[in-house]
Structures are given as structure tokens and as C-alpha cells.
Design a protein around this nucleic acid. Structure first.
Lengths: 138, 138
DNA sequence: GCAGACTACATGCATGTGCATCCAATGCGT
DNA sequence: ACGCATTGGATGCACATGCATGTAGTCTGC
């Protein structure tokens, strides 16, 4: 059996706590600023960004499942998130011919515009929150 | 205005996505295993751990506010979390004489026992999930 | 000692999430 | 072509969270 206070274990716990702290700080700040300034949540922005990035690939559409992996959300949560974005006119759902059960999600003009407005805000928050490594964690 | 595709910015985004991925993977695995094997959530475990650690300080009690900072939860969420732990008999709430509006939270025997049972599980998941750094992130 | 500001915690409410499930469509075996 | 397992996505439901607010206790100024 491992000794429970081994240095390796303490380092692991410290790393986990640091990860938790950085995630909480960044996610919180991101959610607040994106919401206040652009009416977007953190995950909504991530989805818009994936869609915007994918457009560069030539095909302006992405299946729901692919997005799920990108934003670390369950399939059901992503389905509703896309529903919200669609309700706000930021994305559109379209069926795809090959797999008629699959849904293609694409950015609307409004969605592209909103994304471009929000991106500097997100980058700014990331720079502010992730940039400065917290010196003393323990 | 900054050029939006500057390397520094891309590095920032990559760091953020890595953080998100590591957090999601670890939190998800942790929640699942702690729940399956010990009936605890991730945050519940964290609270028990803080309480257990604090006992070593000589005083077996912690104010709710102090726990909030440790688990990155809102005050209301923490209040309800403590309520759940109390309902399960894992912690006890006690008033403190000095500030009668403050609440001291302390581990019960059952809580201490549960924590000691759950700790190896948590450490195991951390080692499995955080230990192997993902080599290729970009 | 009392009024008002403030602090610590609890609670009503709206919302986002995951699990289980449901529905539609595809693929496979016969 | 038909039945059955599987996949992609939507939905009912339970639950955890955050915000705003409520309640109890403390502190300051008078």
C-alpha cells in the first residue's frame, strides 16, 4: 500500500488544487465578462469559436457530437446550448444528407459578428487571468 | 489594436483549452468514482478534506466562509453542500460563542471515516488523470 | 440604548447540467 | 425486404449552482 503522505501524492494534490483554482478564477471571470459585455456564456463562446475556426476548414458546418468533445459538455447539455444559440439567432441547425439523423450546426452572420465582438474580451480575460502565474499556491 | 492571431494569443488559448480539458477530465472522473464508491461529490470530498486537514490545526472546526474559498463555491452553494453533508451525518454545524452569526462546521466520526475511505480513491484518480501529461496539445 | 450599516449564513428562484430515456435514421444479419 | 442492434440527437426529470434576498447577529455613531 502507498504511504498516504508521500511527497508525490502531496504534489499531485497541490497540482489538482492549483488546477481547480485557475479553472475557477478563469471560468468565473470569463463567464461574467462575456455575459455582461456580449450576452454569452463561456461554453457558448467556445462553441461559436469552434464553429468559426471550422469555417476556415472550408465546410461551414459541424456536427453536434464534434462540438461536444470540444467544450467538454454532455450531449444533452450541448443540444440545449445549441438550442439557446439558435433561439438567439447565432447559429442554425441543418440536416445533412449523408446521415439524416446527424445535425449540422453553422454560424449565422449574427453569430459570426457576435463572436468577433466577443473574442477580444475573451482574450483579454485569458491574458489577465492565466498570464500571471500565482506565485504562492501552498 | 493587437493582431488577433499573434503567437502569444494562440499560446494563451491553447493553455486555456488544456486547462479546460484537464479540469473536465479530472473533475468528471473524480465525481464519478467518488460517487460510485463512496457516495460523495467532488466538492463534498474537498470540504471533508479541508475539515480533516484543519483538525490537525488543533481546532476541529471551520467557518463556512473559509471553506468557500477552498472549494471555489459560492456562499449559497456551500451552505447547501454543508446541509447535505449534515443530512448524511458527515458534518455537524455548531454556533460559535464569539460571533453568534458564524457557524462552525466540524467532521463527525462518520465524516472522518468516510473521508479516510474516499481519500485513496481520490488520490488514485488524480494520479491516473493528472499524472500523465498530455504530450501533444496543439 | 437605539438606529442604521454591515457581516455571516440560509433560502426563493431561475438556470444550466447530467442521466435516463425517447425518437429518428442507419447498418447488419438473415 | 424485415427485424434488431446501434448511433445521433432531443427531452423529462432530478439536482447543483449562482444571484438576489431574507434573517439573525455585530459594530459604529449618537
Amino acid at each position: 500500500m502507498p504511504d498516504l503522505d508521500a511527497p508525490a501524492e502531496r504534489a499531485l494534490v497541490a497540482e489538482w488544487r492549483d488546477l481547480l483554482a485557475r479553472h475557477a478564477a478563469t471560468a468565473c471571470a470569463l463567464d461574467r465578462e462575456l455575459n455582461d459585455r456580449h450576452g454569452l456564456g463561456m461554453s457558448e463562446f467556445e462553441v461559436l469559436e469552434r464553429l468559426a475556426e471550422h469555417i476556415g476548414d472550408g465546410c461551414a458546418q459541424l456536427r453536434v457530437q464534434e462540438l461536444a468533445g470540444a467544450v467538454h459538455l454532455s450531449q444533452s447539455a450541448l443540444s440545449r446550448l445549441i438550442g439557446r444559440l439558435e433561439k438567439d439567432g447565432l447559429v442554425e441547425r441543418a440536416m445533412c444528407d449523408a446521415d439524416r439523423r446527424g445535425i449540422f450546426v453553422s454560424l449565422t452572420e449574427a453569430g459570426r459578428s457576435r463572436y468577433h465582438q466577443a473574442r477580444p474580451t475573451q482574450r483579454e480575460v485569458l491574458a489577465r487571468t492565466l498570464g500571471p502565474l500565482p506565485a504562492g499556491t501552498g
